[in-house]
Design a protein around this nucleic acid. Structure first.
Lengths: 222, 222
DNA sequence: CCGACTTTGAGAATCCGGTCACAAGGTCCT
DNA sequence: AGGACCTTGTGACCGGATTCTCAAAGTCGG
């Protein structure tokens, strides 16, 4: 499931402070989801957790990180070293656990050879050998939209099975390849959509609910 | 719907090349979704499009951009000018349509006063007045996880109604505020999850489907 | 050792979005 | 003008995900 990483992070939080066990209730709160959902999800990867007590934090943490493949490490290549690509290369956020950015490639001769952090930007033409020699598992596409599909094709051809696409376009891959996308412009447009709703109808927006209730909503937008 | 931006982009593509009209079929292809879904979605914002012909590109484009609020412009503030914040500030991707990054704020004295593009980083403490004087509508949270909730609270308090969260943590807002998140680490972990699946069971992964069929999958992962 | 209390795990009910299928409406050629 | 053909709009259906609910399992204090 796509919620495992959420639980993982929630577990990390509790493992700092408290010790021993967490209830599904508490986990749900931390992860911003329903408690029943937490239990369903967790039971789906085996019956860890004892009734009347909760889940043993350390053990569950271990199980989830194994399930997520966080115990192995996955070399990453970033294709396209513009603003975004460069920022991603420096981003500690995922240098942190298991994901090492191992190579940067670009097709722009001006950028090839440039140093970014401890890496050197390499030629897109050498992608295949880069992927092979460094056992790259994950490719990040951070190119302009026009180049994205071709880059994806090359990644797939080179043997990459997981692609994260930041380019603002739909790309297509064979179905043995995993594809996820992060689309910044789209996110803003969605916000804009709701914003417009709000300002269009000055007051009568919410359906008489408690106006200051705190809800964790990220996907649905009620 | 959250698919409107997709259609919008697809329409932009066709508006370059061809002229006149598009069928839902073609739009679906461009946007990577089912044709029936396109029709449902579009019919949901009124009956544009004539039977037997399709949708008039320019008109539909106009309608969608109005619906998405892309005709107005939404000043954006970025809170937290680390790697990611700085990259976002420079990113042309959403400077492009309607979204102007109008202010940058940070709490780090070393960063305050620094120039990024044409903007100067301002003090987080002045957030309220920045939001008010510049009529900021959207806040982007690009701080470390620990600071994210407080920053969000401040944004809400200052009157921001739409927040895009890049910090790797769950944040909570009153329910009259729209919240979306972009979680890079989570995306990678999800890829890692499927990657592990693949390598764990060397061959028998896919259920006998055509192994090289091209599918656009981003959310479901079969 | 027993009873009160807590919390999981899973079966049942419900909700929601996606897909299918087809009638209604409209174009274009003859 | 008429018929063949095309594409939309929509009602019906389907399946998966979410939520509700409750019995089973386990702890803890006395």
């Amino acid at each position: 499931m796509a919620r495992l990483p959420l639980y993982y992070r929630a577990l990390l939080e509790v493992s700092d402070a408290e010790v021993g066990t967490v209830s599904s209730e508490r986990l749900a709160e931390l992860a911003g989801v329903n408690a029943a959902k937490v239990r369903k999800d967790l039971s789906y990867l085996g019956s860890y957790g004892t009734r009347g007590v909760g889940y043993e934090v350390e053990y569950l943490l271990h199980e989830i990180s194994r399930e997520l493949g966080l115990t192995e490490d996955w070399p990453v290549v970033i294709v396209g070293v513009g603003n975004l690509g460069a920022a991603l290369a420096n981003y500690r956020g995922f240098g942190a656990r298991g994901f090492r950015v191992t190579a940067l490639v670009d097709s722009d001769p001006d950028k090839i050879g440039r140093h970014i952090g401890s890496l050197v930007v390499e030629d897109l033409e050498t992608l295949a050998s880069v992927v092979e020699t460094r056992a790259i598992a994950i490719g990040i596409v951070a190119t302009p939209a026009q180049a994205a599909q071709e880059v994806a094709d090359r990644l797939v051809h080179a043997g990459v099975r997981s692609i994260l696409n930041f380019a603002p376009t739909v790309i297509t891959v064979p179905n043995h390849v995993s594809l996820r996308k992060v689309d910044l412009a789209t996110e803003l447009q969605i916000l804009s959509f709701y914003q417009r709703r709000l300002t269009a109808m000055p007051n009568g927006g919410g359906p008489a609910g408690a106006p200051t209730a705190r809800t964790e909503r990220t996907e649905e937008h009620s």
